[in-house]
Design a protein around this nucleic acid. Sequence first.
RNA 1: GCAGACGUGGCGGAAUUGGCAGACGCGCUAGAUUAAGGUUCUAGUGUCCACCAUAACGUGAGGGUUCAAGUCCCUCCGUCUGCACCA
Length: 804
Amino acid sequence: MEEYKFNEIEKKWQDIWDRDKTFAASNKSEKPKSYFLVEFPYPSGQGLHVGHPRSYTALDILARKRRMDGYNVLYPIGWDAFGLPTENFAIKNKIHPRIVTEKNIANFKRQLKSIGFSFDWDREVNTTDPSYYKWTQWIFLQMFKKGLAYKQEMPINWCTGCKVGLANEEVVGGVCERCGSEVVQRNKSQWMLKITKYAERLISDLDETDYIEKVKTQQKNWIGRSEGAEVDFKVCGTDEKIRVYTTRPDTLFGATYMVLSPEHAMIEKLSDKITNLSAVREYQLQASKKSDFERTEIAKDKTGVPLEGIKAINPVNGDEIPVWISDYVLTTYGTGAIMAVPAHDTRDFEFAKKFGLPIIEVVGGGKNIQEEAFTDVATGVMVNSGFLTGLLVEEAKKKIIDFLEEKGVGERKVNFKLRDWVFSRQRYWGEPIPLVHCDKCGWVALPESELPLVLPEIESFEPGENGESPLAKATDWINTTCPECGGAAQRETDTMPQWAGSSWYFLRYMDPHCETALASPEALKYWSPVDWYNGGMEHTTLHLLYSRFWHKFLYDIGVVPTKEPYFKRTSHGMILGENHEKMSKSRGNVVNPDDIVNDYGADTLRTYEMFIGAFDQSTPWATQGVKGCYRFLERVWGMRELLTGGDAYSAELEKEMHKTIKKVTEDTERMKFNTAIAALMALTNDIYKLGRINKAEFKTFLTLLNPTAPHITEELWSAAGFEGQISGQKWPSYDEAKTTDNEIEIVVQICGKVKSRLMIPADMDKAEMEEFAKTNEQIKALTEGKNVVKIIAVPGKLLNIVVK
RNA sequence: GCAGACGUGGCGGAAUUGGCAGACGCGCUAGAUUAAGGUUCUAGUGUCCACCAUAACGUGAGGGUUCAAGUCCCUCCGUCUGCACCA
């Protein structure tokens, strides 16, 4: 038998696909369109991880199948190439990040090509290409013009060793991930994007999408919408009011004290009335020194200081209540102040217990509120609450808000946990922010004709002493003229975060060479939205949310035709190391896809990655398992020896063929790739048992396997002398009637225990089966001497006879 | 702490709606081929049992609903992921 030379075969077909542009998508077609998207890789120095091909193969299979279904399919790829690791490598090795990026991309491209994905390589994009980031900058400018970009003092993570601002991901256990030095908070003026303006729509428009539930839930939780009320508490002896936000206005009668965040502005206003000001100042100082890390680390133990000399008035009952400051109240959420209801909030309860503050029950039906806060809103009934007493919690909420609004001391309010997006990075390897600062005109947008604003060439990529961007050293570049008044002005030296380029890349694929717009309106209209987007769960709350935000903005200004960028979103599970741990260099359990391609071939790698386990679940790598898939493909290769004539399915295999087509078709669409492959393996076993396969059967078999193992199937197709290329064939269809047998085996149970198996006609209905049960000799024998109470018949499955 | 997912042979994992638990693959055992190893092929492979099986037991633990539970309900244990004082 001729040997299965996968290396030769794979190279051969990859060259043919390249030459013929087999998988190029057209922007004009009679066929319906289908757009499949995978997250484009960050071309790191380590090369492709076996996790990449899991997602890429899955959507490659769907894309290839959809082409066979007669669709005009777009399946593109590109490079998300700005980012820190490349920059750090560049600093360390004194190489320009562009050079590093080029090298890494070349390696990634070689690797991806070696696996035989049906990407349309003519549409390759690269976020670091000026012709690409021109449009990233353009979108930013539109946001700036619409008031969605603004500058604000923000605390950043400052590494005292490297003298660099760090991303949250780079701070591990309160110290710098790279040098181990202490990380402190430092205020820095940063560009921000108003994603919060879209919070409501980012939740509600999820209804129009077909994302897997997990993703929807995680996005909703991240955005964190809550409904409640804002309420004003007067400060005794002044005209000042402290406004709080609460989701439990119904418990207002139980508010026994208030808490302000240490940074709350009211503290300054009332400073001359506070009698323990030095203690307050000391607490504020301590709080400001704590990093976010420390604040959450010691979260369990509540601290605080009362504002002595200050009392607030509960607006519903006129009670004078004390006011405290504590860092368990966040400045950045709600109004930075709360009313504390220790009986019905666990945090307030802890605080009240620690400082001996009164606890008043206002929702009855719970446990002893001196021992534990009662927070159940579903069953509670109001007590000790004046006009609310006797109402259910939900009724009380409505009534109290009406009351507050009527009296002018509060109002209904929706809050979100979502914060605006910090958009500045003090780094070199990112898109320059296309703004200039003029003393007279303030921040001014560059004219669009000056885009792209290209990154200047500089000597050293290290950030400055005070954490300013490396671009601050490019003085020639910085000094410019104001587009508005013509006077002297300076360019912004911060760059954009990595998330910028990836927030709209799927639009560029639709028309990657367009020079007049990010993509032509026709292309956007034709391809939008992305039909199916697969990616990692780790991108749910950042990339996925950011790109939905940008897309909604582009929709609002009339650039894109749909509200949502992606219709369907699915997610793959992680591939773990052979030892069931996350793959990482430090654990030494990394598998390089190159090795698998070299030793077993791309088709084996693809098949194994799909066969390894349930697609949406994480699962360990097993090199032994790779062998199993290789053996399967070798058996497929050997099928050519079994080939006989015949243009219709043979009697022996007809049923099996129809069943398998059905199984593979349905499983593929549901991303159950592992069971689809299992079905093809089972069919292979049957074919070998039979010892032959005819032309019609072979064609169908190869077509079903083609999306998973494209090279070997192309080769076998052409070697068998079948017409054309297999990738241009139609996906096989099946006849439902032929997927079932005429006679089937059913299970006969007595009281739920399997006692026998019998053959019956497949089309027997319930009544016929019951009749059969009464007359069949074997069943009679089984129920001999017993009283038949009930017969349960499940057509096609079983008979269960209940006896006494 | 909160939210979500998961728990099935020696291993990865199957099992639309409650209806034959363990498909498919790995590994293992025996045999054939081979000078030998590897490859390949054939048969077997949940547990228990000296043996027989259309027996009994068996899907993290315990309980329940049902003619029937891996699947539904309750309690508990464990693993993973995300969030983390969001009022």
